[in-house]
């Protein structure tokens, strides 16, 4: 993908993000943060490619570290968000 298309995606996604996030009520700001944390674990995608490649030991080591950290983010983030959101009830 060329740089201009990447940049286009980046800028448009920021505007979309601002529009979306401003609609999240203050009540849900903590779950929003842990949830967006989990989503930023998307780095896992890059980590998987580095860890599974045959490009050398150092790359595999860095890939392994990245997979561990990103997986903590993804699993921990989504689980704790789910745990919090399950508590929000209306009587």
């Amino acid at each position: 993908m060329d740089f201009v298309s990447q940049l286009t995606l980046f800028v448009l996604a920021i505007f979309l993000g601002v529009e979306l996030i401003t609609k999240v009520p203050p009540t849900l700001h903590t779950p929003l943060m842990s949830g967006s944390n989990a989503i930023s674990g998307i780095t896992l995608v890059g980590a998987l490619i580095a860890a599974g490649s045959d490009a050398g030991l150092l790359i595999n080591v860095l890939g392994f570290i990245a997979v561990v950290l990103a997986t903590i983010n993804v699993i921990g983030g989504f689980m704790v968000t789910n745990r919090m959101l399950a508590m929000f009830k209306r009587k």
């Binding site: 990447q6 993000g17 967006s36 989503i39 930023s40």
Partner: peptide
Amino acid sequence: GNSALIVTGSLVGAS
């Protein structure tokens, strides 16, 4: 050059 990371990262950055 990964679109998933670019889009998602900027969503979180904006948040």
